[in-house]
Design a protein around this nucleic acid. Structure first.
Length: 677
RNA sequence: GGCGGAGUAGCUCAGCUGGUUAGAGCAUACGGUUCAUACCCGUAGGGUCGGGGGUUCGAGUCCCUCCUCCGCUACCA
């Protein structure tokens, strides 16, 4: 009989830096599902990996003075080590630099090109020459390279494009036929309203080659760009088109994927580009694309430039992988952003793990030692109390199952903890110490047996969430956890519903408490010191503040960046470069808001010798009324463009920092049209 | 501007397809217990469920509208 398969993936991570706790969260939730499905008897395939072909990776390597591949190897080793330590039970780890991936990506490219899905067109955008990197209009920061802050130039060159629009209708239909395709559902509307319904643009899938990346077949001048390369990992890892029958069998067995798990910012690529690529390849679509929220710090999104990145290794060293996993899974409402604070982590570890769970096992074992000679006593008949306990357990197990089906990890753990709490209550109500005094040894034994048995059940239920703790619990209950076929016996998932499956007579082991209680204040003080040290070690530079949120408040921003160095200091230019820019004094005759644009104002300017219209993005800072009559400085020889349908002949100067902006003007009266230099 | 999310006890959050006195944990106050990692158990106080309308026998839960915060997206020549 064939088992049902379950193919689950994490995104492939960028190896240009060490991973942080947000990545650990992605991996942990995926792993929890994989472990759960295995326990439930599924034939699980769990894939993770790294996205290594970006030019940014090559650049980082150069900065570090290393061969690119060697540089990447080192980072991949650190990622794999982290996953090992966190108990991430992946079945395969794909690196996009491996031949098994690169060769197939080329085959896919050729196939799509032959079908006419990929065509040679013209790319137009911004290029940072020293960085050899391309940017779209909106990636630019103040019109400069977001990475290095240097000038970028407008380029226009041949490039390959994927005809996305061809498949848009089919994708929309797929969304309708499969309402569960995108989780949470709210993202689906975003995809439709923002991208699909307005019309999909063709996706640029190549870049100029620079000695790193996957060459476009038959065109060594270019490499395959990002998404076509990255997304296809999910099938190249299954041997798609490999021509090797053993490997292609994986494809037949596991595709389509059951779940692609990821953080919310890349749902778009998985819910639009990826299905379309698959349609073009005539492959079935994944069953579900699941986007979880972000782990935020108290001061907003984690980013290196803020210096608030938490290294999961540090937390594992100090508290164990299970403790970290428990905290992440329990404290964060899946799908929503969660705030990481050391305080909340300490509280979870103390209250839930040390006090409730750890202490329950510990107090029980010490009574078994004291009253029963350290042997698991005989069960004894159930009374009403045990019947009710049994019902509570069956209900809780059902809740755990339902919660996991909807990715509610926190709810699942909360359900398990109702059992733990009931266990502590049970001991208090039964008062084994009183039974001992009264000489009711049989009942005493039965009560302790039941409590141990409950620990067996809790141990089983915790297996998806915590890879190490359950085995420690079982060992303390005197069970042989090395038995291979234990799944059919008292430790199977099904046995979590049944009280009384714990064997008796064997010796218990009283060892170290499962989780130590922490001195919260002391821990936080020490951790903060350690984290500060980590940040100090970090590299200088802006890192990947790719979508750093607009500074929440200036106070915060200021407090966080003591560096006095102004942003965007660039290379020196000659006077002849500056002379190209024609700056003139102008007076604002009138200004008006532009409909449907909240940053734009349309200004009529008087230059003395002529009048012209300029569109400026200052609506957030100036009202039309206060602008009228103002003297401003205009870049008068800028190529005209249209913005929101309005022609703009030039640009007015303003100084800005963070979310502050002030218009530049001249200090006193001067004739309109005067040249500024 | 478009789309989406959030706004529930002091704090962090649950409340699925509308149904008896709105829940949990933490915090606070009081009490119990001693087996245990000064743990555990119990009781209590505390919420006009962002504001305002509406549908309904009945709404935190559906509809409209407004406010605040957040995200995505277009627009800062």
């Amino acid at each position: 009989m064939d088992k049902s398969t379950y193919y689950i993936t994490t995104p492939i991570f960028y190896p240009n830096d060490r991973l942080h706790i947000g990545h650990a969260y992605s991996a942990t939730v995926t792993d929890t599902l994989a472990r759960y499905k295995r326990l439930r008897g599924f034939d699980v395939r769990f894939l993770t990996g790294t996205d290594e072909n970006a030019q940014k990776v090559q650049r980082k390597a150069q900065e570090a003075g290393k061969e690119t591949l060697q540089f990447v190897d080192e980072i991949v080793a650190s990622i794999q080590s982290l996953w090992r330590r966190l108990g991430i039970s992946y079945d395969d780890y794909i690196r996009t630099t491996e031949p098994r991936h690169q060769e197939i990506v080329q085959k896919i490219f050729t196939k799509l090109q032959d079908q006419g899905d990929i065509y040679l067109g013209e790319y137009e955008g911004w290029y940072c020459t020293p960085d050899e990197s391309y940017w779209t209009e909106r990636q630019l920061v103040d019109g400069k390279c977001p990475d290095c802050g240097r000038e970028v130039e407008r380029v226009r060159e041949k490039s390959y494009f994927f005809r996305m629009s061809r498949y848009a209708d089919r994708l929309i239909a797929h969304y309708q036929e499969h309402p569960e395709f995108i989780v949470p559902e709210s993202r689906k509307n975003e995809m439709l309203q923002n991208f699909l319904l307005p019309g999909l643009e063709d996706l640029c899938v190549s870049r100029a080659a620079a000695g790193w990346g996957i060459e476009v077949p038959g065109d060594p001048q270019r490499v395959i760009y990002v998404w076509l390369d990255a997304l296809t990992n999910y099938i190249t890892a299954l041997g798609y088109l490999s021509g090797d029958s053993a490997r292609e069998a994986l494809m037949a067995r596991y595709w389509p994927a059951d779940v692609h798990m990821m953080a919310k910012e890349i749902v778009r690529f998985h819910a639009i580009y990826w299905p379309i690529i698959l349609m073009a390849l005539d492959l079935p679509l994944p069953k579900q694309v699941v986007g979880h929220g972000w782990l935020l710090m108290k001061d907003g999104k984690m980013s290196k430039s803020k210096g608030n990145v938490v290294d999961p290794n540090l937390l594992i060293d100090r508290y164990s992988a299970d403790a970290l996993r428990y905290f992440l899974l329990r404290d964060i409402a899946f799908g929503q952003d969660g705030v990481f604070t050391l305080e909340s982590m300490m509280e979870r570890l103390n209250y839930d793990l040390a006090n409730d769970l750890g202490n329950l096992l510990h107090r029980t074992l010490s009574m078994v030692e004291r009253f029963c000679g350290g042997q698991v006593p005989a069960p004894g008949p159930h009374t009403d109390v045990e019947e009710r306990f049994s019902t509570l357990i069956v209900d809780a197990v059902t809740q755990v199952e339902l919660a996991l089906d909807r990715y509610d990890f926190s709810g699942a753990l909360a359900a398990i903890w109702t059992i733990v709490r009931r266990g502590n209550q049970y001991i208090d109500e039964m008062a084994p110490w009183a039974l001992n005094k009264a000489g009711q040894t049989e009942r005493l034994g039965a009560v302790l047996y039941n409590t141990l048995d409950v620990m067996r059940i809790v141990g089983i239920l915790l297996e998806p969430f915590m890879p190490h703790t359950p085995a420690r619990i079982f060992a303390q209950l005197g069970l042989d956890v090395s038995v291979a076929d234990r799944r059919s016996a008292e430790l199977s998932w099904a046995a979590a519903r049944e009280m009384g499956r714990l064997p008796s007579g064997q010796a218990t082991q009283k060892v170290e408490p499962l989780f130590m209680r922490l001195d919260v204040e002391k821990e936080i003080a020490e951790l903060e010191a350690l984290l500060a040290g980590e940040v100090g070690k970090g590299e200088v530079g802006k890192g990947e503040a790719k979508s750093a949120p607009p500074a929440k408040s200036l106070e915060v921003a200021a407090a966080e960046s003591p560096k006095a160095e102004p942003e965007g200091v660039t290379t020196l230019i000659g006077i002849e470069d500056f002379a190209k820019v024609e700056l003139r004094v102008a007076r604002v005759i009138e200004a008006q808001k532009i409909e449907k644009a909240d940053k734009l104002l349309k200004l009529q300017l008087d230059l003395g010798y002529e009048r012209r219209q300029v569109v400026s993005g200052i609506a957030k800072f100036y009202t039309p009324e206060e602008l009228a009559g103002q003297l401003v400085i205009l870049v008068a020889n800028l190529k005209p463009v249209k913005l929101r349908g309005e022609a703009s002949h030039g640009m007015i100067l303003a100084a800005s920092v963070g979310d502050q902006l002030r218009l530049a003007t001249v200090a006193g009266d001067i004739e309109l049209g005067a040249v500024v230099k």
